[in-house]
Design a protein around this nucleic acid. Structure first.
Length: 592
RNA sequence: GGUCGCGUAGCUCAGGGGAUAGAGCAACUGCCUUCUAAGCAGUCGGUCGCACGUUCGAUUCGUGCCGCGAUCACCA
């Protein structure tokens, strides 16, 4: 979208030769929004132009200011303070932005974006770390979509491997036929329980072996239960019916559990990949790489790639026994994704602990000459810490996703009921509202921070509904809806109004300027792949709206045209908040 | 040790060559007979980790140092 900022920047560039006798590059024309403490809407910083203008800052600013006022219908006046040229736009410009019925639409792009996110292991339930991944992945996909990109959400489920066998084995040995049904437990929780159970026995056996004089490393490799798990994996890979049946049965439990959590969280996927289907695909690529001389084989038969020229190390791509490692599978899956979707960009939403892995993955695919390799991007986000420190599954300090959502909803319920504004709601309406608020708080809390940075999750703070929070923004939306309902009640919805002589109140103008930024922020949040930008904007809009709400009576406005204009602002503020939140996956209530 | 990331108010975070560095929380003060007070307005709070350098101008860019974290498996 072309903004007034772009407009002014371009016309200054075009006029520059006639004003100063030389060309100027677009990027040295610095245009900002004017700071609140100065008069004006747009500020041009002239310092970078002085070398070309060969004049003093004030003089340069004057020349440009005079030119703009003569050649730009939207500019009402200007003032110069030091090297800053502050431009005041006519109220007309802002008013017509609000009243114009044909808003510019975002053109659709023909660049397909595939976003892989979530990608859980089937041996443990989803926890807070995964919640950040899910919320971020969903929001990112929403942002690409809103910017016109065909977008595919993919989930690669890690459903095989030694770790899966561990929970299977523990269930087989100690489970006594326990099922989600007879235990009254979600399937993913049940399987997770047996993963922990395995670890308990494994540790005990290691302990015993060390007592018998083995070293720790020997003990870890020789513990009987570990050997059993390895044997089970081998059986699984050979298609042993009993093991495969058990695997299918337990995985079905997990999927049922995950689906429930996903549904609650409000995330979804267009495509599921399963590592059990893709883990063999990478082996062909290993052969191809050997033929092309990209990989090499060591004496023991293991296959490697030497990335030391690229500042990395040597990296194993196939084990000596011919079985796949993590990266082998990822190579295969990358090919499969391209076969399925021919995407231009392939984004992996994966924690920053895997930065190295994804560097290697991309580099290998580039060396193999894959057409999609350059479009691979690791969307690397920071870990989630608790006030007590890191989350560690082994130490039981993880925050479970289902419990977390329940807690948030309960907190929303308590605080909402205390205010007593929704006593006339039905039970279902209440439940829906508590969920909207609770999850809104949670998602906003996770999205408001720069994805690249690690996050400190303080439960107390996350449950807060005041200030820089999701519920604050939701509340503001509900306010706009409340006013709209009242306006309809008193039948003040005539639309044919002429605002050409309308005098903007300063708070109205501030609100319009904020609304004007929506399209810019939406584009930026996509370019920078940063949902926090959009979420923060929604907050700023809500804040500005609340100020407007306080300063400017809407339905009780003095003049009719004031009332109608403010109703327009009210409606557009609400709609914009709703759009922002919908893009990142946060619901918004009609009343709260 | 190598590589990568991060150090901004008591706490959680924005900002990212340009004017006097911003929000929220916490603490304190005002504002509901008037459109939802989950709100608004205000007070308090900063050597932008430290040092050099580049620049008309550095919290922002570069280098070094200090502190914190991640990663460097025939784990995923």
């Amino acid at each position: 979208m072309k903004t007034i900022f772009d407009d002014i920047q371009q016309s200054v560039q075009q006029a520059f030769p006639s004003l100063f006798g030389c060309e100027v590059e677009l990027h040295s024309i610095t245009i900002n929004e004017t700071l609140k403490e100065f008069e004006g809407d747009i500020t041009l910083v002239v310092f970078p132009l002085l070398k070309l203008s060969k004049k003093k800052p004030e003089e340069t600013a004057e020349i440009i200011g005079k030119f703009l006022i003569e050649n730009h219908a939207s500019i009402a006046s200007y003032n110069v303070i030091k090297g800053f040229l502050n431009l005041v736009l006519k109220d007309d410009f802002w008013i017509s932005f609000i009243t114009s019925t044909n808003k510019p639409t975002i053109p659709s792009k023909n660049e397909t974006v595939l976003i892989e996110y979530s990608s859980p292991n089937t041996n443990k339930p989803i926890h807070l770390g995964h919640v950040r991944n899910n919320v971020l992945g969903y929001a990112l996909a929403g942002i690409f979509k809103a910017n016109g990109y065909p977008t595919i959400k993919a989930n690669l489920i890690n459903d095989r491997g030694i770790h899966i066998c561990k929970s299977m084995l523990a269930w087989q040995k100690f489970g006594n036929g326990e099922t989600p049904e007879n235990a009254g437990m979600k399937g993913d929780k049940l399987v997770g329980k047996y993963y922990v159970e395995f670890d308990k026995h494994y540790k005990q056996e290691i302990e015993n072996l060390i007592q018998q004089g083995k070293t720790k490393e020997e003990a870890e490799k020789q513990a009987p239960i570990f050997l059993e798990a390895q044997a089970m994996l081998l059986k699984w890979e050979n298609g042993d019916q009993e093991i495969v049946d058990l695997w299918k049965r337990m995985n079905a439990w997990v999927y049922a559990g995950f689906e429930k959590t996903y549904k609650n969280l409000g995330v979804d996927f267009d495509k599921y990949y399963y590592e059990s289907n893709t883990y063999l695909l990478g082996k062909d690529i290993v052969d191809e790489g050997l033929q092309k001389g990209v990989f090499y084989k060591k004496e023991n038969g293991s296959v490697w790639i030497d990335l030391s020229a690229d500042g990395l190390d040597e990296k194993l791509v196939l084990r000596a026994d011919g079985t796949s490692v993590y990266i082998t599978q990822d190579l295969g899956t990358a090919d499969l994704k391209y076969k399925d979707f021919k995407m231009n960009r392939s984004i992996y939403v994966v924690g920053n602990e895997q930065d190295y892995h994804f560097k290697v993955l991309k580099l290998i695919l580039q060396k193999l000459g894959r057409p999609y390799a350059d479009g691979i991007q690791h969307y690397s986000y920071g870990m989630v810490d608790l006030p007590s420190g890191k989350m560690k599954s082994r130490e039981g300090t993880v925050v479970d996703a289902d419990d977390l959502m329940d807690d948030m909803i309960v907190a929303a319920k308590e605080q909402t009921e205390a205010l007593g504004k929704i006593d006339d709601f039905s039970e279902e309406e209440k439940q829906a509202l508590f969920k909207t608020i609770g999850l809104g708080a949670l998602k906003f809390f996770l999205l408001r921070v720069d994805p690249k940075k690690r996050i400190l999750f303080d439960p107390k703070e996350s449950i807060d509904l005041h200030g820089y929070t999701g519920p604050f923004v939701q509340y503001t939306y509900a306010r706009t809806r409340s006013i709209l309902r009242k306006a309809i009640e008193i039948k003040t919805s005539e639309t044919t109004q002429n605002f050409s002589n309308y005098q903007l109140h300063s708070t109205e103008k501030e609100l319009i300027k904020t609304l004007y930024r929506y399209a810019i922020v939406l584009g930026d949040s996509c370019k920078e792949m940063n949902p926090a930008k959009l979420v923060d904007f929604a907050y700023e809009l809500a804040k500005t709206f609340n100020k407007f709400y306080n300063d400017c009576p809407i339905l009780a406005a003095q003049k009719e045209e004031e009332k109608y204009f403010r109703l327009l602002l009210n409606e557009q503020s609400g709609e914009t908040i709703k759009k922002c939140f919908a893009i990142v996956g946060i619901d918004v209530p009609e009343r709260m």
